[in-house]
Structures are given as structure tokens and as C-alpha cells.
Amino acid sequence: MAAGAASGGSAKSDTYAEARTWLLLPAWAVLGIFVLAPVLMMLVYSFLTKEFRGGVIWDFSFAAYDQFFCNRGLFGDEPCSIEWTYINIFWRSIWQAGAATLLSLVIGFPTAYFIATRPEKVRPIWVFLITIPYWVNLLIRTVSMKFMLRDQGPLNDFLISTGLIDTPIHIVNTNFAVQLGLFYSYLPFMVLPIYASVERYNFNLSEAAADLYASKWVTLRRILLPAVKPGVIAGCILVFVPSLGSFLAPDLLGGAKNFMIGSLIEEQFKGNAGNWPFGAAASMILLTMVLIILLIFARQQAKAEKGTG
């Protein structure tokens, strides 16, 4: 979704140049107050002291970051050694998001390619079919997925009735269930940018390669793939980034064992038990990771755009 819009497009004309400040003012105000200011406030909160019933005390402190990275022993008086608990949760999130991305790529690439090689008139219909589920409530989709995959759910019923298995396969509350949920949540983000770049690809190049004795699969690997690489990278980023901070799929499909960043953050703000500065700090770390990935990605896209003219 962000792929085509990465540069924001160019200004088409300057007809309304003198009014642009007034036209942009409402957007600046609303987004500034309700998105930008809150993120900055979150940064501030991550350096405050926690209050035990939720909320903060306005005392400057590194405690939240210290808790995240440092293990200071049972009584909190030992020198800092690396605390692995939260790093492991982040690491598991990265791993899960990566696996979901790979799964999306393996299924999404052939799909995107297939759609892009349909006759021009029916392509929008295929794209529409792929995107419809995305617009269905994520919560409902995740619940549906959980319902499907249960031990006594339709999937196991179906597999048993066909005689493929005798006893239900446990899928819910496994890593795989979470990956499947994430894949299901963000698949259109993989398909759309790849579709867009395959559609732009000049198939004369493949013909030229075939003419020069390359087989189909060699042509795919040596000619097509390098040409559509920006689309593939865009797709991977667009699946990976939201997967990393997702909450619903790990919470509903993963259970307590498969805790991810989203659940860790959510817990800090639940009821009176939470630790707001720590939640803010974890959010800041997640946000920083995401912004770094997006920045590298934007640089690469800009370079690729320059390269292709």
C-alpha cells in the first residue's frame, strides 16, 4: 500500500498554491495533535517513573530502559548484566514475523505473478478478490481462523473424514498458528506490490532470453526476478513491519507460550497491574526498529527508481 505512494507522487499543478497553507492546516492540526504529539509524549513517558496503579510519576528515570536491558539480580542491587527476557520476546517476534513474511512470499509471489499475466480486463477483478478479506475486520478474521483450526474445528474434521489423519492435529497455540494468522492478516500487502511490478515488467525481455536458449525457470530467476525485486522487497517489508507489532494473531492464536511484542506492550497498560513507562519504552524500541527498516527501504526504493530512469 505504501509502495506506490512512497514518494507521495509529484505535484500535478500549482493552481491552488496560494491556498495550500489553509488547505493543509486541518490535516496538520489533527495529525500533529493526535498522532505526532502522542508519539512524542510516549517518548517522554518512557523516561518517567511508574506508579503502581497504572500511570506515571513525573520523575525523570532510566528505569524503564534499565528494566528492559539489564538484569540486576533478585534484589536489584547487582551490576548490570544482559537481561534476556524481553530481548527474547523481541527476537521471537522478529522470527515469527520473518516466518510469516516467508510464507506470504512463497504463496503470494505465484499468486501475484498469475494475476499479472491474466488478460488486462480481468486483472482488477483478481486483485479485488485478493483484497476483499483485508477489508474484513481483522478481529473477525482472526477469530474465524481460530475457529477453523481448533482441534474439533472444520479443518481437523475434514482431514479426519478424508482419512488422512486419525487424531486431530494441534495447530492452535503453536508458532505455526501465529504465522498462519499473520500471513492471513497481511497477505494483500505482499501480493499488491509484486503484482504491480510484474505488470510493469516488459515480457519482451523474457522472450529475448528464451530466444537466447534460456529455459523458463532460468529466465524467471535471471531476468524476471531482478526486474521485479523492488516489488518483492516492498511486499516483504509491508508484511514484516505490521506483523512485528501485531497483537491479535499472537494473542488469539498463539496463547501464553507464544508471547510477542504486541502482547508485552498491551499487558503494561491493562488494568492497574501495568507499568506505563516500561510499556512506553518497549513501544519506543519497536517504533525505532520499524522506522529504521522503513528508512533503509525508502533509500533503496529511491535508488531503484533512479536506476530505472
Binding site: 505504501a2 493526535f34 498522532v35 504529539a37 502522542p38 508519539v39 509524549m41 510516549m42 513517558y45 513491519v241 505490521p242 512485528l244 507489532g245 501485531s246 497483537f247 511484542i261 504486541g262 506492550i265 498491551e266 497498560f269 506505563w276 510499556g279 512506553a280 513501544s283 519497536l286 517504533l287 520499524v290 522506522l291 522503513l294
Partner: peptide, 14 residues
Amino acid sequence: MVPEIVTAVATLIF
């Protein structure tokens, strides 16, 4: 660009 959970936390804090 901002993960939804981060926006949620930030808005709550705000």
C-alpha cells in the same frame, strides 16, 4: 508507518 499498537499506546498516554 507507526505500528498500530504503538499508536494505541501513544494516544492513551496523550
